[in-house]
Design a protein around this nucleic acid. Structure first.
Lengths: 122, 122
DNA sequence: AGCATTGTATAGTAAACAGTGCACATCATA
DNA sequence: TATGATGTGCACTGTTTACTATACAATGCT
């Protein structure tokens, strides 16, 4: 509900400027060409960079890498494996989680963690 | 934990034979070349076919498409969007769900569904 | 024997992906 | 005016992806 998904490129540019990096400087740190970085920030590329590169950028700007990867429309590699490990139950879980608020999701997350910590019996 | 993840190709071949299709016949129905289908069944291809094609194959063989897509190491398209809608909370939720059994996952799924049905207050 | 039908190995390919290089316009500063 | 730094448009490129074409061996049927 009301989750305004700001384009990845816009967010990237905002954060980069806030950190005081020029386009060329940051491109160098992130190990991409200035041209490409410019295109990404403008949303001129079909799809944002790879998950690995997005992770690097997020780290350079002190942002949450997972969040940025998801915002870029990529999938953190481990999530794919998690889903694969329970190919029926995990998709169902995600679809059920779809409408819930972030707070509710966090609550469920906590409960799941407790479930695991309380003893890997069996 | 003892989740024996049977290779997708092996499963595909088993199901295809059970349904009485020859490789060429099924390849034609699924709209791929016999060569390619053979490779897929043998696990000779780096990665299984696209989600769309796997879905088609699953339907032809009366299997659960989502399950097959996940088994093939692909991501049902809608899941990506769901994760993107809550780019912090959803990855966290999945990671917490990681070790849980299928039954426990189903329980949480039910609870989430109830939460939603009981009224989107606030 | 002849022919069809089965699956398979090898090689190749069109399109998409994830970028790069270079020239260029704009603005600031000296 | 010159020099430097900023970001950007356009063309291009190496690599990966998701397959296909061709030829072939093995088995079955008549």
């Amino acid at each position: 509900m009301g989750n305004q998904v700001k384009p990845f490129g816009v967010l990237l540019r905002q954060r980069r400027l806030k950190s005081g990096y020029s386009l060329r400087k940051f491109a160098q740190l992130a190990d991409v060409s200035p041209t490409y970085l410019s295109q990404v920030e403008q949303g001129k590329v079909e799809r944002p960079p790879t998950a690995e590169r997005v992770r690097k950028m997020a780290e350079l700007l002190d942002q949450n890498p997972d969040q940025w990867i998801a915002l870029a429309g990529r999938m953190p590699e481990d999530l794919r494996d998690i889903i694969k490990s329970e190919p029926e139950a995990m998709p169902a879980l995600l679809r059920a989680a779809k409408g819930l608020s972030a707070e509710e999701l966090r609550k469920f997350t906590k409960r799941m963690e407790n479930k695991r910590d309380e003893g890997g019996k069996k």
